[in-house]
């Protein structure tokens, strides 16, 4: 669908060097990399908005490397939305549609359909500077979709949003991807975002693609320090979240289930920091809602602290100090309880 071959872009201080990527039709593809890795420029290069030094870009079997941006059929959403401030929401949505030689009613219909799709119909007459971050993002998405792009490029679409809006827009992205079978390339520095949304993830670092794979692969066998360091600091689970019977939400991961705090339901991800888990030899009586029994399968010694892998299953990585480790007399194969608060689990 979209193929990037040996793409080289000069970024001034460094190069994006020999980027090779293939994104399938209808795929949600994430490019994950730290801030300053050149992610935005990579997207601009794909869209034809940034000059490239070398390489080729193919879209649906057609080479577009030298094509002007307006002829590529690529939609773009910038991190801070870049809505046209001199136009209303409606004007923004119609901007791309006006480029087409369609009858006026047809354009209006598409515009209304897009507004409906993103739930921004009540905002159509508003000026863009009266919108909240989440609303702006939806308008920017609708505007980018107005030209029916073959690929939609999203530059950190969630990072400028506060946490409440982030969840909503994330749902919106999922919905767009599923309903429209829209091919999406989304760049982010946020792991949870990458895992939550990506069919596949490419890890970008130091100007190169370091790893491409499914979220599971990237996360379980990271080959970059950037990912590995993150992977060490999070327990990530995939499971089914459902409402408890009148009680708190519950996530079922494999055969185990535990309580979480979230309004989201369905197949989702959960993350839990190793330092938020208490390890004890006996079941704890505390306000923490979750206490699971497991076996220590691995111990990683970090000097003053140790990372224990406790298999309940699933595996929980827990952080303990050396002092606690010694006082509790923990050892590989030993049986322990892992205890954590429902609110320490982040569902995404």
């Amino acid at each position: 669908m979209i193929e990037i071959k040996k793409l080289t872009v000069n970024l001034g201080d460094f190069l994006l060097d020999g980027i090779d990527l293939g994104v399938d039709k209808g795929e949600y593809f994430i490019i994950l990399g730290p801030t300053g890795a050149g992610k935005t420029v990579l997207l601009e290069a794909i869209a034809g908005l940034h000059p490239i030094k070398m390489g080729e870009i193919w879209l649906d079997g057609r080479e577009v490397t030298k094509l002007e941006p307006e002829k590529r059929g690529i939609g773009f959403v910038y991190q801070d939305y870049a809505l046209f401030p001199h136009l209303t929401v409606k004007g923004n949505l119609l901007f791309g549609l006006k480029q087409r030689k369609w009858p006026k009613e047809e354009r209006g219909r598409v515009m209304e359909w897009l507004a409906e799709l993103l739930g921004i119909t009540p905002l159509l007459e508003r000026s863009t500077d009266t919108l909240s971050g989440g609303e702006r993002q939806k308008v920017a998405l609708a505007r980018a979709l107005s030209t029916s792009p073959q690929v939609l490029l999203l530059d950190e679409p969630l990072s400028a949003l506060d946490p409440q809006h982030r969840e909503g827009v994330q749902q919106e992205l999922r919905q767009i991807h599923r309903r429209l079978k829209q091919t999406i390339i989304h760049v982010t520095h946020d792991f949870e975002e990458a895992i939550a949304l990506g069919d596949r993830i490419a890890v970008l670092g130091a100007g190169h693609i370091l790893q491409i794979g499914t979220p599971e692969e990237i996360f379980r066998q990271p080959n970059s320090e950037f990912v590995a360091r993150f992977a060490m600091t999070r327990n990530i689970f995939t499971g089914e979240v459902r409402g408890g019977d009148g009680g708190p939400a519950i996530i079922a991961v494999g055969g185990t289930q535990f309580e979480v705090v979230s309004e989201l339901r369905g197949r989702l991800h959960a993350s839990l920091r190793p330092e938020d888990i208490l390890v004890s030899r006996e079941p704890l009586i505390s306000s923490a809602r979750n206490s699971l029994r497991g076996t220590i399968t691995r111990i990683a010694d970090r000097g003053a602290t140790l990372y224990l892998t406790v298999s309940t299953p699933p595996d929980f990585v827990c952080l303990v100090t050396r002092r606690s480790f010694e006082e509790l007399g923990l050892a590989e194969g030993g049986e322990v309880y892992v205890t954590f608060k429902a609110s320490a689990v982040h569902i995404f």
Binding site: A47, F76, A144
Partner: peptide
């Protein structure tokens, strides 16, 4: 970037 977005919208 407003100009760049306009280009991607077909202008």
């Amino acid at each position: 970037r407003l100009e760049k977005v306009a280009r991607t919208l077909g202008a």
